[in-house]
Structure formats: structure tokens, C-alpha cells
Design a protein around this nucleic acid. Structure first.
Lengths: 187, 187, 187, 187
DNA sequence: CATGAATGAGGGTTCATTCAT
DNA sequence: CATGAATGAACCCTCATTCAT
């Protein structure tokens, strides 16, 4: 179905070139469909982006939920969540970057709010895991926000100065930051 | 002099609306000069942005250097560096955001590299301070990068959910992160 | 039958939003059928419009003919024709407006001519009535055209500045214009 | 100056093909300037249209005022106003048509209101002349509206079935309609 | 009979940049 | 030094129409 082809192409393009640098023409070309087809499936570029975020996050949270329930130790759960997030950041770096750093540019206000809500929901999702694991007090939101922020920054740094060694370092450092309770100060 | 008026206006506009959302028209208007004048002083929008970053960072590093040399304790030095950076982030949030998070959009490759170098130089500058204060081993680059990343993220979070209480928290948390040696793991 | 549903919907949409502002999508939605169905019944938007005009006018002229033959005085006949036309204008204002004022926009030349012929035929139909009633000399075309023009203009004015009082005024004024023979000068 | 070239070209294009059928590309081509130039002088197509109407009406009312003051009899004044208006209608038929029959299509609401106000102001201008000449009671608005409506319709008819004889007829008929007091019934 | 996914030409608009003055 | 009129490529979006099912 061409809706999926389009979302795939959009993910690739946004991830490669960012939101504004990816034109609807480019995305259509990448998806192998006509420009008008994009507008058959999505009312606007912004809404397409929103769908991408929403449906992408749904898949991610589903994956994490499934994996986490597979009878693991607390430690393994935390490690897993961190590793999966790092992988996602590195695979879809630009997209993740957009997602976590806003798109202040000329985008429909309504979509901006929706994406912001998605982000807050995801932060809450991670926060719940941290709280359940005893790694954060209260609602855990700021702790989760802190982890993701660090993750975002470290992955960006890694992508600029890549070397396999550091990749495992990121996982380890984040794990330490979480387990030593540094982030609980944030509450 | 109109060059300064332009840079001031550009800083305000970029900080308020981001790089791409600020048109040359807007900047000229804000500066109170004609659009053509921008091109008298700078060969392109990207170069203007570059000049802004370069000269801005020069001022910042000069300020920090001056303050740091005023015979302070190590603790005070670290606190000062953190506080100054937090202030800058909050004052020029968008600009800082751009500076620390790339501008993947349609910008001259050459300028992109130059700005990236400026950023690495600033990271190095902070790294040197950390090393000198014994807060990081080796070159301290990744430690510095980590601090700035966290700073970036926390300030963004703060701006989205502001409350005076949290502002001091940011300073304190960053101070803790630096002094407890968490970041030294990064080397 | 879905052909009728479509024509009804088209009449409503055109009358509400005009020809070009009504998209095939809108009409299909209003009719409760799929977009493709429109093209099953009509070869193009323009042809659909033409069918609407043709069949609508057929109904109108039939109605008028029937009513007129019901053994009325000349005066009553004229009053009737005027009143019916005013009602139609006000009920289907946009459609009437399109019909009487051309659609210079991108419409098939052939359809344009056809619609123009429909209009001239209607003018002739009214003209015949006027001549038969002794209210116009010769072929009465320009008289009929004049009445309809005035009717068009007054109804538009009425719709912009409505008030029940004026509605009856329109009928009366047109009746006066016809009966005092003003329009016979037009021949 | 290219602003004038553009307005001239726009008047020609609109008058020839109507508002929507005239693309900005067409107008630029007709004016001999680049498409972007249109947007240097006017913020949008609708605003350009508005400027055209406003400035055109200014010229027309100025002309009429000047001519009317040249010490004429009442009869000559009325004849003059009618003749000038007929000439304008025939010269800029489409434009006049748009002006007097709305543009319900996708045009900025604000511009629509502005143009409507221009039209009402022009009607008022004509109304004042009629009242001053004793040809209408009270504010004369509906009388003026009636004359212009008839004028509009007759000119359209004339353009569809042209012949020099009828042109003078239009002037005469309108003059009769005004002077016999038919329109005073409208008050 | 009817559908709806897909198309692509065309439209209005933005904006960094150029250049004659 | 500075201006501002002019440019044109690129962008997002609309919509009548086609066609396989």
C-alpha cells in the first residue's frame, strides 16, 4: 500500500535531511509515487510528519512493552530500555533530533502541540518504567527527561565522532547515571 | 555602525524564531536598515550567522576567562562557568539551540563546517577548564560535551515548564554531575 | 438513484459556494457517493453543470407553463412569472448568478456555448410570454433580458441588505417596469 | 515604474479572463516582469486586485467630479454620468463584472469586505449625484444600485449581441429610467 | 453500477540574492 | 556606505480526471 511506502520514505528523508530540507517532491520521489499521492493520504506535510511520529512511537512503545514483560531482572529491564533507545536514536538520528528538539519553523500550531504531546507521553512512558524500577521518585518525569536529553546529546556527539568503542560507553554511562540516582535529584 | 545593529538584530531574531524562520527581510527590519545593507556587510545569510556565532563566542569566552582569573576557588570557578552558560542558554535559547544542535537545513557546507568547528572549540574551551579543575581526565572533551548536552536539555525542559524553583536546580544538578565525577567515566 | 442525488448535491453546492469553489470532492461528499461515481454519470464537472442547468430549466419552464395555462388574467400571469423567478433567484442565488453572469473561468468552450444557449432559450421563453401579454413588441428579447437583469441585480442587492419589506418591493417594482412599458423602448 | 505596469497588466488580464482564470504567472508575463516582482509590490493576488479596484475607482470618481463641475445643466450631468459609466463597463467588462458581482471564490475575507466597501462607496457616490439632481429621494442608494444593475446587465447583453445601434440605446434607456422616476419607487 | 486510490499539471507564495544607483 | 526594486528557483498545496477492481 502506498501509504506505508510514503511513511517509510518520509522517515528516511526526514532522518537524512531534516524536516524542512525534505521537500514533498523529494519524499514522493523516494517513495516512488506521484506528488499528489502524498496529499491523498495526508492533508499536509505537517500532518504527515505527525502521523510518522505517532505511528513510529506506537511501534517503539509496543516493542519496549513486549520485551520488558519477558520476565527480566530490574537491571536487565533498564539496560534494555536504554539500549533500544540508543539504537533508535542512531538509526533515525535526524528524526529523533526533530522529535526531541522541536520544529519552531513554519509548522501548523496544532501539529506542533500534537507532537509535543506525543513527546510528553513518551517521556511519561519512560518515567513510569523508571519509577516502577525504583530508579526515580514521584512521577519521574524530569528524570526521564534528563535521561533522554543526555541520550540525545551523546548520540549526536557519537555520530559526529563515531567509533565503536564509544557506542557501548553511551549505554554504560546512561545506565550509571540512572542507577546511581543522580537523576533522582531532579525531583 | 550598522554592522553591529545588524548582528544585534540577527541575534534577537534567530533567538526568537530560529534560523530559517527569520528572513533577511525580518532582520533588516529589526535592525532598521535596508535589506541590501545586509549584503553590504555579509556575503550571505549563512555567513552572517557564522559571524554572529564567532563573535558571540569570542565575547563569551573572554567574559569567562576574565571572571575565572579573578582569584577564585576551584568550586567557585566551576559554579561560575555553569551559571554563565545557563544564563546564556536561557537568554538566547533558540540561538544556543541552533548552535548546539546543528542546522541540517539548506546552508552552505563550508559555513556548516566552520560553525561546527566553533562549537568544537568552545567544547574544548570548557574541557580545558574542567581538566584544569581536576574534574575531567585526559582532554575532557567528552565530559565537556556531556555537561553542555545536559545543560542544553535541562534548559529546554525548563523553558517548556518554567518555574523559578527549577532554575537553581539546574545549576545545582549540573554542579553535582560535574563534581561527583560521573562524567569522567566518559573518557 | 445516485444520478439524482448528485444533481441535487451539485445544485446545493454550486448555489452555496459557486462553481469553482465547489470541488468534485465536496459534491461527492454532499451527495453521499464516491468521487468516482460522479464520473460514472457525467463525463466532466462542466458537463455535470450543464446537465444541472438544462434539467433545472426544464422543470422551471414546465412549472411556469402549467401555472400560466390555468386560465388567469394577463395581470396575474405577469405577476406569477415575476414572483416565480424572484423565488428561484433567492433560493438558488449563486446558481442563478452563475447562470446569468457567465462562467468565464476554465470551462470547456463547448459547454459554455451550450449553457449560453440555454440562457438565451430561457430569455426567449420569457420574451414570448411578455409579447403574448402585449408587454413587449417584436421578439421581446431585450425586454426579457432587461427584466431578468434587473431581477438579478435587485435580488443580489436584497441578499446583501435583506429585510422582508423589500422582497415584496422587488416584485412590485419589476411589475411596474414591465407594465409601464419602459422596457418596450429596448426594442 | 513596474508597479504601474503590473496594475495595467492586471486590469487587462482580469478584464479579459476574470480573476481566477488570470494566474500570477500570466499577469507577470503580460506586465513583462518576473513573477516575484508582483509580490514585491503587492502582498497577494487578492490585495493586488483590491489595489486595482481602489485606484481605478479613484480615477473614475475624480474624472466624473471634474466633468460634472464644468457648469452643465442637470440633464447634461445625468447623461454624462451614464455615458461615462457605460464606457467603463464596456472597456473593462470583466473587471466591472467582478466588481459588481462579487468574487465568492477563495479570496481573503478581508479583501472581500474592502472591495464590497469600495462598491458601496461608489454606489453612494452615484446616489449623491442622483439626489442632488432631484432624481432620487432620501439617500438614493437603492436608485443608484438599480441604475448600476441595469447598466451592468445591459452592457453584458450588448457585449454578447453587439451592434452600434444598441449602444446609444443603452444610454437612452438608462436616462429614461432615471428621469421618469421609475427608480424613485425603490426608496 | 460504483468505488477510491493514484495522478500531475498548475496555482499562489516565499525568500535569499543581485545590481544599478 | 547604503539602498530597495527586481529576480527566479523552489516550495506546499489543490483538484479535475483516470482506471483497475
Amino acid at each position: 500500500m502506498s501509504r506505508d511506502k510514503i511513511l517509510d520514505a518520509a522517515a528516511r528523508m526526514f532522518s537524512r535531511s531534516g524536516y524542512h530540507r525534505s521537500s514533498m517532491e523529494d519524499i514522493a520521489l523516494e517513495a516512488g509515487v506521484a506528488k499528489g499521492t502524498l496529499y491523498y493520504h495526508f492533508p499536509s506535510k505537517a500532518r504527515m510528519f505527525q502521523a510518522l511520529i505517532t505511528e513510529g512511537l506506537q511501534m517503539i512503545t509496543d516493542t519496549i512493552k513486549t520485551e520488558i514483560n519477558k520476565d527480566r531482572s530490574l537491571q536487565e529491564q533498564i539496560e534494555l530500555v536504554i539500549r533500544l533507545n540508543v539504537e533508535l536514536f542512531l538509526e533515525y538520528s535526524e528524526l529523533a533530533h526533530i522529535f526531541f528538539n522541536e520544529i519552531t519553523n513554519g509548522i501548523e500550531e496544532e501539529v506542533l502541540l500534537a507532537v509535543r504531546n506525543e513527546r510528553d507521553a513518551y517521556i511519561q512512558f519512560i518515567a513510569d518504567i523508571l519509577v516502577e524500577a525504583g530508579m526515580a521518585k514521584d512521577d519521574g518525569q524530569m528524570a526521564a527527561s534528563g535521561v533522554l536529553t543526555m541520550l540525545n546529546g551523546m548520540c549526536s556527539y557519537y555520530l559526529r565522532h563515531p567509533s565503536e568503542a564509544k557506542r557501548e560507553q553511551i549505554n554504560r554511562l546512561l545506565y550509571t547515571a540512572v542507577t546511581t540516582g543522580l537523576l533522582t535529584e531532579l525531583e
